[in-house]
């Protein structure tokens, strides 16, 4: 096979491959170009040019049931293990817990 024919075959093959790849893109999109973007959940941060969505949880930390905040400083260890004896809690209410 001549070099000319080899080049022609290679050219045809290249054009066919290119047509196949372009066909894979579909049709009707011309003029609708926007730069390709990748957005990873966990890096969410709406740009200032699009203030319409404020992803209020910017990371992929899903919300937890919202117990009202502000109780954090008011914890105490259980004075007794009430599960063991249900009357203890009533006694503590009436008489006051021991060693408080």
């Amino acid at each position: 096979m001549s070099a000319h024919n080899e080049n022609a075959i290679a050219g045809d093959s290249h054009r066919q491959r290119r047509r196949r790849l372009l066909a894979a893109l579909g049709t009707g999109m011309a003029g609708a170009y926007v730069a390709p973007t990748l957005f990873s959940v966990g890096q969410a941060r709406a740009s200032s040019s699009y203030s319409s969505i404020s992803y209020s949880r910017p990371s992929y930390s899903r919300p937890s049931y919202s117990r009202p905040s502000g109780y954090e400083g008011n914890h105490r260890r259980r004075v007794r293990e009430y599960k063991d004896d249900p009357t203890l809690i009533l006694e503590d209410i009436i008489l006051g817990p021991p060693d408080r």
């Binding site: 926007v34 973007t37 990748l38």
Partner: peptide
């Protein structure tokens, strides 16, 4: 991890 590609992506 979840990712999102726009049309061109």
């Amino acid at each position: 991890v979840i990712h999102r590609l726009n049309l061109t992506g």
